[in-house]
Design a protein around this nucleic acid. Sequence first.
DNA 1: CTGAAAGCGCTTACAG
DNA 2: CTGAAAGCGCTTACAG
Lengths: 323, 323
Amino acid sequence: MASVDVSTVSRALNNKAYVHPDTKRRIMKAVKALGYSPNLVAKSLRQGKRKTIGVVVPSINISIFGEIVQGMEEQARRDGYSILISNTMDDPVVERDCLQRMRTGLVDGIVIAATGQNTRLLADIASENITVIQVVRSISHQFDCVVADYYRCGYEATAYLIKCGCRHIGLINGRSDMQPYQERYQGYKKAVAKAGLLEHVIEASKDGSQYFEDGYQSTRELLHAVPALDAIMVATDLQGLGAIRAIKKAGLTTPENIRVISLTGHPIGATLETAMTSMQVPSREMGECTTKLMIERIENGDHTSVRHQQIVFDTMLISRETT
Amino acid sequence: MASVDVSTVSRALNNKAYVHPDTKRRIMKAVKALGYSPNLVAKSLRQGKRKTIGVVVPSINISIFGEIVQGMEEQARRDGYSILISNTMDDPVVERDCLQRMRTGLVDGIVIAATGQNTRLLADIASENITVIQVVRSISHQFDCVVADYYRCGYEATAYLIKCGCRHIGLINGRSDMQPYQERYQGYKKAVAKAGLLEHVIEASKDGSQYFEDGYQSTRELLHAVPALDAIMVATDLQGLGAIRAIKKAGLTTPENIRVISLTGHPIGATLETAMTSMQVPSREMGECTTKLMIERIENGDHTSVRHQQIVFDTMLISRETT
DNA sequence: CTGAAAGCGCTTACAG
DNA sequence: CTGAAAGCGCTTACAG
């Protein structure tokens, strides 16, 4: 329509080389008239860049992952990237399938909160020039990661409860082989030992242990095992809901009899009937940071770098009504 | 490595034509040895199919959308499709950008919970052979949609409260120009009129009105405007939290003084300190259904069809402690 | 049953 | 400053 070669159109649209202003004007006019926009798939194939980031998380309906994904997506949009998403439900087989699919040219990089069962596969993928970044869970030191300081989170929450006068603090924790739970436990352990108190730890049944059922059931067990219990630390606000409910059912009250603190704050915490004290994780910022790091890695192509980056965010205590 | 032409490899891998068993075996062996898997981008370009569905929603952190997206993603994975996601925050400009990006060859179809400000653009996109399906919000009859029966939802919730003996029922509703809110209001109106009662409706400030701040603030306003109030209907469980908290702050209790019912159930509703009565929306199923419909449309290529499908899911009353 | 050729829609050296 | 050619990695008629 502008009677020029496609290559000239390409140059005009990408400002790649000098194109005569008149020609350019003609092209732009035609582009507008036809509503033309270049096919990104063809562009990808030619340039070997997808401008797409794959995200593999247990579930976007677990609030921390939902927030992180949203933060990632917003930052990605600003930089002209798209987000391809998969929920694994922490099933290693599902995770493997998702990774296999993504490696096949769909994405430039993969952000993963992994089960830990596919580390070999991830290493293979990384060696194929696909950047791998871990988020929330740092499983392997072979890859960059963006996490929170779980140790300090556990330590500070425990120290705070002790300062409140608690002497029998229960910790409802997730699978002890997962780094975040592991480290939170270490922080708790340290604070409890320092105060000369006993540990009361219970490992919630479900893998993720994000769920209120776990909070409810585990609280019942704790109350039964430790009659003198005066505080409970839970993994998430949702789990805290289960804890509060179990406490209420046992004829006790929060915070008078038993204080509750959640180690992963959720926006709802602030508006509950009894607003929850929690450690706030800057999930939105973590998401943005992850995308930025990813794009930097992709565009500078330093996959070969032996140095890996570990970005650790601080959590913040938000004191509310349950303590 | 198997010393055959790439075309033969392609045929072998796709079972497209007869390939000699021996040759096939040799190829498969090489595939395995090299860990080869075909480049999906090249495949896409050649076949004109992306095997990718674009999803455009206000935010995956609004629980109904999060659940729907997860349902969609699971079904998509089963069928070998991927999900590309965008959060618009109900900003028409962001929505337009996301759609423009997706139309450019990234997806075979778009699932959208739209703002309603880009209907023309959506029609253009649909005319380019990209299937458009609306979810949750049915804005235009030009496209298929998967929704819940908001009218019945509003009607039944109201009728239930009336059956409980309520005479002054407040409705905290979202923007009245959005179909779900509009229809819920119609259902409420009908039930209230049938019982000879007055309407007490308040339009929450935020567009989506999904948020507890709205529930809190609107409840305060309702309590002030209607001293005899004995029930409140809210859009979501999270909004209900705000309502319960406002009721408590006003020195009243739930359900004794004021009953609360949410029109969009969320899993947490069941485990709150005072468990919330709500209308359950089958969001996971809606997500699966949306993906199935999308894939059917894409693979049968009936974009030209003038008949559009409207799939309506029923909601279900779950009676708990707030009523 | 299998190879050679064309083409999906771009970009990018290479000439001119 | 611009056109013609090659090529990204596949698939698919077309011969043989």
